[in-house]
Design a protein around this nucleic acid. Structure first.
Lengths: 142, 142
DNA sequence: CCTGGCGTTGACGCCGACGTCAAGGATTAC
DNA sequence: GTAATCCTTGACGTCGGCGTCAACGCCAGG
């Protein structure tokens, strides 16, 4: 199998496969013309990489999985190094979700506050809630 | 106030302030030497930007808040456009948190599966759970 | 006068994962 | 034969928010 067919089979581009090769993942044999040649193992290897990429793993983080597969394991996550990456990622995900949840709460609070303030101003001035603009046109445009 | 002092007061760098100016946020008057000159309004404006940046807003998303402040409003979020950005951001945050939560669940499941498989293999072969390596050395290193 | 510390503009560097184009050689279809 | 399609390498572009360096101007202290 050559690079174009492999790319089609895993739903990516030849550029991506060459990039993976340049990073040391996905090595390729060459035929007489210098064309890259791949086998079924490479399909599995790429599917592993794509799955992790879809999870938001960086390419470097997929390396233990790739090396695990290449060393003969049936699955990329059958090696301790891969499991360690899983664990690290879980921690990062938890931390990130926690931060985002905190930010979400703060933004929600700011939104509520702003809406209340605008409603209060609208009530005070008797203006429409959608267009308070005291002197909202920018003077410095020219 | 000149650029260095302003940067120190809001806890950022002069590079950042010049960058904001180049993006059309934070305009500056100049004194006789061509030095940028700022006032207290600019401190508030920058604090608004930094707060939003800390929330993960892109610079472009802070523009409505900045224009709101510059148009004379007491707060950057007293304008409908700013409130709209808040709402949009809440939606993005919810979507992102949802995706990350889903990914976290999938990664957690994969981790559990991998750990169970490794434990099963270790029991089958009587090997240590930390070093299964059937033929783990990479052959293609040289 | 020299040094040091502020200011100015311009321009390149960084990161990650590729996209895209260039210029050529090989293969395949008709 | 020839056109279309595939392959090769190399190199620059993308995006955001600056960092960092270069080369220079302005001013105060000793």
């Amino acid at each position: 199998m050559r690079i174009g067919e492999l790319a089609r089979r895993v739903g990516t581009t030849t550029r991506t496969l060459r990039y993976y090769e340049s990073r040391g993942l996905l090595p390729a044999r060459r035929d007489g013309n210098g064309y890259r040649t791949y086998g079924e193992d490479d399909v599995r290897l790429l599917e592993q990489i794509r799955t992790l990429q879809d999870f938001g793993f960086e390419l470097e983080e997929t390396r233990p999985f790739v090396e695990c597969l290449r060393s003969g394991h049936p699955a990329g996550d059958s090696c301790p190094a891969s499991v360690a990456v899983y664990r690290r990622k879980l921690g990062e995900l938890d931390a990130l979700i926690g931060e985002l949840t905190s930010v979400r709460a703060q933004v929600g609070a700011e939104l509520a506050r702003a809406e209340e303030a605008m409603a209060g101003l609208a009530a005070d001035a008797g203006a429409a809630p959608d267009g308070p603009e005291p002197r909202c046109e920018l003077r410095g445009t020219g």
